[in-house]
Design a protein around this nucleic acid. Structure first.
Length: 887
DNA sequence: CCTCTCACG
DNA sequence: ACGTACGTGAGAGGG
């Protein structure tokens, strides 16, 4: 039988990895009895992944029986000096075994033998019985068991990331076969198991020697042929050690196990015991999964949501009274709600839940009114998605005053999700399945045909939105985020709905003209490049390009990536003067990028109304900025002349109208001057100096702005940006192409001139350490658990983030306020002008001709007065008949 | 599906 | 001794 699959797990090793994967949460993973549960939890998570991927018919989890094994007889100090397993992990091991038994999985240990040997023995048994075998461990030693029938999976980071060792992969990593790997270890020894190999031989040399000789036996047979060398002496001196090490490293494949393959066949899960176990461990997630599947209920009925299906006649009878509690959920299949198919809806009024697949029922007068009346408060999940979706059936939603998605994003944006089910799970409610579970994904994504399945799903969502509302509101209050929620995020979502619905007009004809021009230039460049390369190749493939440049043409490879030569702009720029091909490749790259991403990309997303409708993701970024997708309108080229041409296709709705753009000047530095309270920097902004020249004067000790050269200003500008990002001398030196020493001096000088900026940076890091998060002026949070990391790089990154997030995030808060005020102003003045794009510090408007005078005045006014700071906010305005001319 | 490269603030 | 500025999205290649 070909589908016999044996999964062998190294219990101790995996438990060890599981324990450290959730080490940071060690203290939060405790059951009421005080037992730590992090390793048990992570073990189960990992097991689920394995069972799903491998789909084994037989499973065995092997454990070490005790400290002393047959290997200690050979070598006293085997595994000596090894750190003791932490008590917090030891106490969990029996429970992991108990859980495995409840899951119908066999565990086994054997006196005098390690788990490795049990696994080796079962690999042997399994292969003989024609099983496909998978071994899972955190220990690379076991990779010696790899064969064409056996794959060894080794945990990489945490537990869910596994590296699969096949004989081919072994060869690639170590240069040797699985069997030869044992001989390799014989020469190099094993530090973690505390036995030595041959002096001065590490992995590289060991691999080379074994590749040459095949085994240590053969090596020592030919040792006399070896040239005289220190290495040869060492090999001779340590011969005994090598042979001992080989014995120690060899996994026993014939251990005297007392069980066989038939004993490790998967048994049915004992749901009743498993449920009790999860309850004892306080595993709400796994209990929730049991609830969702209805298993192990022990007679108790799963609490099913009751609902009424709506149709043409009973839908008309629905009405709401004052003070009724209303929640609404609109189901659509897929992310892009501008186009996605409707799945149905659920409406909850007090304790009644109504559902239907037919969204046209919402166009009935009573239901339409219910959704459109601003006086009727409605709870939803994803206000913007709901508003845009309803707009497609001509229902113009108002009164969506509570959005669970926005609330959960503000409370913790670390593991936020756009799925109702997933968000509910974060708050311990497992009554809602995820859309992934119900609809599937990729090719098999579909709406369930069974009404019961679909309606229960939709109904469970509205119920949960409402049920969890008090909890989320409480958390917002605790975080002092109620104002941020009510007065910034919710109104921003409404403004964004309007912007997304209106979209922006993009002229296909302009793009097609560009497409033709670029096609000609690309062809010319291609021809020149191929001619110099002496062959045709795929210019878009970094791999092939690297081969041509560095292997064939012999240019010096300055930088490598994980997979080969780097061919990035940074590298190519340094090679420019070595060959004309380099400059041509750079030109080709630039134009090809514009052609594929922008010209073609935009043409593909122009809708029948002649406009593109992006989606702004309001709950994605870690800092509070928006992001834009389908298409991304926040990265339309501006830095090169060819790229800029794209902006000519973005035009006003009315032929003689204008595109008006208004952007904040140095908003992040102004925010920095505000939150640091630095007097010198504030003074610069208050007197209206050019901030980069001002910084240049300060760090170069000049008396007059006249003495600032353009080079000095440019350098000062880079320093200013660097400060905002949490500068390092190395980073600055690289960007300015100066020595590290000099960069260090610039930074030091900067800090003496702006001392409170330095104080801010130190304080920001300290606050993040104390509180565990960084915060903006408006109390937007970003959690930074890595601030306590033992890894220097990880920690340093968190520290820079702690400095940058309040700055970037506060600027994001400010422009959101400006957008809300701006939309309000446009509405009040009954202007036809539409706000169409936001690019982080810039707002773009579609302005009819006769409104230009008004709009060009009010836009900067509104933006500059969004918040009151100790320094002025400045916004610069430009306009023209397309986006290109609006600068 | 991941990596590389490159577009933006 | 370490490896290095913050935040994003998209297209193309290649396994």
């Amino acid at each position: 039988m070909a589908d016999k699959k044996l999964l062998l797990i190294d219990g101790n090793s995996v438990a060890f990895r599981a324990f450290y994967a959730l080490y940071r949460q060690l203290e939060s993973f405790k059951n009421p009895e005080g037992l730590h549960t992090n390793a048990i939890y992570a073990f189960k998570n990992m097991l689920d992944v394995l069972l799903k991927d491998v789909k084994p018919t037989h499973v065995l989890v092997a454990f070490d029986a005790g400290k002393v094994t047959f290997r200690n007889k050979m070598y006293d100090d085997y595994k000596g000096g090894r750190q003791k397993t932490p008590e917090e992990l030891l106490e969990q091991l029996p429970y992991i075994q108990e859980m495995l038994h409840d899951l119908g999985i066999k565990t086994y240990e054997l006196k005098n033998y390690e788990a490795d040997d049990i696994i080796g023995t079962f690999v042997n048994l399994g292969e003989k019985a024609d099983f496909k075998v998978t071994v899972v461990t955190g220990d690379r030693d076991l990779t010696q068991l790899t064969s064409n029938k056996t794959t060894v999976m080794v945990t990489k980071h945490g537990v869910s990331d596994l590296e699969a060792y096949t004989p081919e992969h072994m060869k690639k990593i170590n240069g040797v076969t699985p069997t030869e790997f044992i001989d390799m270890k014989a020469l190099m020894g094993d530090n973690s198991d505390n036995y030595p190999g041959v002096t001065k031989i590490g992995p590289k040399t060991a691999s080379n020697l074994i590749q040459k000789y095949g085994s240590i036996e053969n090596l020592y047979d030919h040792i006399d042929d070896m040239k005289k060398s220190k290495r040869k002496e060492n090999l001779i001196k340590d011969k005994d050690k090598a042979f001992l090490a080989k014995k120690l490293a060899t996994i026993d494949r014939n251990a005297p196990v007392t069980i066989g393959l038939k004993d490790v066949k998967c048994k049915p899960v004992d749901y009743k015991k498993l449920r009790q176990f999860y309850e004892q461990m306080n595993f709400r997630k796994f209990l929730g999964e049991l609830n969702a599947s209805g298993e192990g209920q022990d007679g108790a009925e799963v609490e099913k949501v009751k609902y009424t299906e709506l149709d043409q006649s009973n839908a008309k009878k629905i009405s709401v009274k004052e003070n009724d509690t209303v929640s609404f959920y609109l189901g659509m299949l897929g992310d892009n709600y501008h186009l996605a198919d409707f799945v149905g809806f659920a409406l909850k009024i007090n304790e009644q839940v109504y559902v239907s697949r037919d969204v046209s029922l919402l166009q009935e007068n009573n239901l339409k009114h219910l959704l459109e009346d601003a006086e009727i408060n409605k709870n939803v999940f994803d206000l913007k998605r709901t508003t845009v979706g309803l707009n497609r059936i001509d229902v113009h939603a108002h009164g969506l005053n509570y959005d669970m998605l926005l609330a959960s994003y503000l409370i913790n944006n670390e593991n936020n999700s756009n799925d109702v089910g997933e968000v509910c799970h974060l708050y311990g409610d497992y009554s809602v399945k995820t859309d992934l579970e119900v609809y599937g994904k990729g090719k098999s994504e579909h709406v369930p045909s069974d009404d019961k399945v679909l309606y229960s799903h939709l109904a469970s969502k509205v119920v949960a939105i409402e049920k969890l509302k008090p909890l989320l509101l409480k958390k917002l209050k605790e975080h002092e985020q109620d104002d941020l929620f009510e007065n910034i995020e919710i109104p921003t979502a409404r403004v964004l709905s309007t912007m997304e619905i209106s979209g922006i007009k993009v002229e296909a004809s302009t793009l097609i003209q560009l497409q033709n021009e670029f096609a000609v230039r690309l062809k010319e460049l291609e021809d020149k490049i191929y001619q110099q390369a002496g062959e045709r190749f795929n210019l878009n493939s970094p791999k092939q390009l690297g081969h041509i440049l560095f292997d064939k043409l012999g240019l010096p490879p300055l930088k490598k990536t994980k997979t080969g030569y780097s061919t990035s702009v940074e590298v190519l720029n340094q090679l420019r003067n070595q060959s004309p091909i380099v400059g041509e490749i750079l030109d080709y790259r630039q134009i090809a990028k514009i052609q594929s991403t922008y010209v073609k990309g935009l043409l593909d997303v122009i809708q029948p109304d002649g406009r593109v409708h992006t989606r702004y993701l309001q709950t994605l970024t870690a800092t509070g900025r928006l992001s834009s997708v389908d298409p991304n309108l926040q990265n339309i080229p501006t830095r090169t002349d060819e790229g800029k041409q794209i902006r000519k296709a973005f035009v006003p709705t009315e032929k003689d109208g204008y595109i008006l753009s208004c952007d904040y000047s140095q908003i992040e530095l102004r925010v920095l001057s505000q939150i640091s309270g630095d007097e010198h920097m504030q003074e610069a902004f208050n007197t209206g100096y050019d901030i980069h020249s001002h910084t240049a004067m300060k760090i170069f000790h000049l008396d007059s702005p006249k003495d600032v050269t353009s080079l000095m200003r440019r350098r000062a500008k880079t320093v200013n940006f660097g400060i905002v990002y949490g500068i390092s001398d190395y980073g600055l030196s690289k960007r300015l192409n100066i020595s590290r020493k000099q960069a260090k001096e610039f930074i030091a000088e900067y800090f003496t001139q702006y001392p409170q900026v330095k104080d801010y940076m130190d304080k920001a890091v300290q606050v993040a350490r104390d509180k565990g998060y960084a915060e903006t002026i408006m109390h937007r949070r970003r959690y930074l658990p890595d601030i306590h990391s033992k890894n220097h790089n990880v920690r340093a990154f968190a520290e820079r983030t702690a400095i940058n997030s309040p700055i970037q995030g506060s600027a994001a808060d400010i422009i959101k306020i400006a957008m809300i005020n701006m939309q309000k102003k446009l509405d009040e003045l009954h202007l036809k002008t539409k706000m169409v794009i936001q690019v982080h510090d810039e707002l773009i408007f579609d302005v009819p001709k006769d409104e230009l005078e008004t709009v060009k005045k009010i836009v900067p006014e509104v933006m500059q007065s969004a918040v009151k700071l100790d320094v002025p906010l400045v916004a610069d305005t430009g306009w023209g008949h397309n986006w290109y001319d609006a600068k």
